[in-house]
């Protein structure tokens, strides 16, 4: 099953998002948080992201969800540092953080491929909230 890593500047954003996701998929999907700095500031750490990608990786790939700016840069750096086979198995979704994570987790819970899970996350960009 595809694993998911939530990369946010804020642990509160990541934890809140994970709460919403667990309502939908329970504990079926392996999801980890890499948010904030080790000394409690807002921010991201490539080292922490790398660690969490390794943790959720099960052979089927890892989708990395990112919020703003440095989350993207840190995630890209973390993936480059992974080494194979993980480097090719971890991808960043270009998607809204909350809605994208929910869509990705649902897709992953059905055992879909990494490409399908990523497409589900990125697909929410075209959803209209007002119908």
């Amino acid at each position: 099953m595809v694993g998911i890593v939530l990369v946010s500047h804020s642990p509160l954003i990541a934890e809140g998002t994970l709460d919403l996701v667990r309502q939908m998929v329970g504990d079926k999907v392996s999801i980890e948080i890499a948010a904030g700095t080790s000394d409690g500031r807002l921010g991201t750490s490539a080292e922490e992201i790398e660690k969490k990608i390794r943790k959720v990786y099960s052979g089927d790939g890892v989708l990395v969800m990112v919020d703003l700016g440095s989350a993207v840069l840190s995630a890209e750096l973390a993936i480059e540092n992974l080494g194979e086979p993980l480097r090719s198995a971890a991808v960043i979704a270009d998607a809204p953080f909350v809605e994208g994570t929910i869509a990705a987790a649902i897709e992953a819970s059905f055992g879909k491929s990494l490409a399908e899970v990523k497409a589900a996350a990125e697909g929410v960009r075209s959803y209209s909230k007002l119908g």
Binding site: G43, S45, S70, L73
Partner: peptide, 14 residues
């Protein structure tokens, strides 16, 4: 890279 937190971490780190 591992301690800055903001974008300057990965940027100056790289």
């Amino acid at each position: 890279v591992s301690t800055v937190g903001g974008a300057s971490g990965p940027l100056y780190g790289t």
